[in-house]
Simulated scan of single mutants.
Amino acid sequence: MLMNSQIVSPLPIHSVTLFFADMWILLGKICTWIVFLLIGTYLLPLIWLTCFCKPQDLKRKYGATWALVTGASQGIGRAIASKLSSQGLNVVLVAIDDDQLETAKRQLKAEFPRQEFRSVGVDLSVEPHVYMNKIMQATEDIVVQVVFNNAGYLSMGFFRHQDVEKLIGNLECNALSAIRITHHFMKRMIEHGCPGCICFTASAVSFLPSPFASMYGASKALLSHFAASLAVEARDNHIDIVALHPSYTRTHLYANTPKLLILNFLDRFAATPEEVAEVLIHSAGRVILRDTGGYAVITKLISRIVDMGVITYFMMIARKWLPEYRAFSKKA
């Protein structure tokens, strides 16, 4: 005797269609949130800072009398010193001990006769105990509440072709000196119970791999990470920390590098040192990390969307087409 078998009817076609439609809607919402987290959380603060925040006076903000700027004889450092002086701050100028330092001091004094200026001629790439002693002696009778770690230089070429001690000196000047100076003046601010700010001139070059300028990119990345970490610790002491990532800027940084086509191209969109200084002062106490200029924003977005390992892999494949590779291969 045959038993009646139960026949299961397939789902109606419209039910399947609705299911996949709901899945696509859910996937779209998830993607929207991912894009917002990756891009929106980066762009919104940038728009807020650029469009809605007014310029600020650091002397008034922190009740400060003295500021210190490294790399103060030219470029961005010189522009920072001028801007701070215009706000009524006295400035300690730290730079290589040469005619440019004394010229900068003399020009600033002529422009701002009511302000005091102290020059400290040191080489931040060698003998840390020597340059720190000079800086400490020059500031032992004052309270420095505004610090701009701006000094740095660019050394380019194949890593293996460069003298390792010079590479370490590049790291010392670009990053380690900033850490030593920050450690000293942060402790002094806390001992005196003073609020203040410590600023770092990092670089957008650290967002992507920087072959043929490996020490420069690494040192600037170190500054950014150090600033972000230190900002958390310094909060209880009312000390603001900020690191700025400028795009290509018209300074003497590239004076001793090969005349690469990419640098000529970027120079068309380059900011002036005065513009960069204005953005850095504008950012103090408002954000921890700030990018300025089209190159910085675009490369930051790329690094947020595409994995760094993937970017590096494609740069490895295309390495022989990089203008730096061709330029330094000829010298090798």
Rank of each mutant, 00 (worst) to 15 (best):
G157A: 08
A271N: 08
I288N: 10
G196V: 08
K259T: 13
K59Y: 02
L44F: 13
P12Q: 15
D57W: 01
A81W: 00
L44R: 04
F112D: 00
M132Q: 10
Q56F: 03
F36D: 00
A151L: 07
V69H: 01
Q162P: 03
R118H: 08
A332C: 07
Q145F: 01
K54Q: 07
F148C: 15
V310G: 07
A284I: 07
E165G: 05
F19H: 10
C199N: 15
V143I: 08
A67D: 03
I311A: 05
E102R: 12
V92I: 15
R250G: 09
K166L: 06
V69C: 03
P128S: 14
T257D: 05
S210V: 03
P45I: 06
A64K: 01
I298D: 02
G71M: 06
I142Q: 11
F19I: 12
T292H: 10
A271D: 11
L244E: 04
F20R: 10
V306P: 04
E191G: 00
D236L: 14
L266P: 02
K109E: 13
L49I: 05
L43A: 01
K109N: 12
N150P: 06
A175W: 07
M316K: 12
I76T: 11
C173L: 13
K105E: 13
I168A: 12
E165T: 13
W321I: 04
L43V: 12
L27S: 11
Q162C: 08
K330Y: 10
K83S: 13
G169R: 11
N256V: 03
W321V: 01
I96T: 10
V94K: 04
L260Y: 06
S86K: 11
L263G: 05
L244A: 08
A202P: 12
R78Q: 13
C173W: 07
Y295H: 14
Q137G: 12
D163S: 07
S214N: 07
M308A: 11
S229A: 15
Q6S: 08
G196W: 04
S229G: 15
S119D: 11
A213P: 02
M308W: 04
A175D: 06
S9W: 05
D99Q: 12
S203E: 02
D307Y: 06
F158C: 00
N4Q: 13
W48D: 10
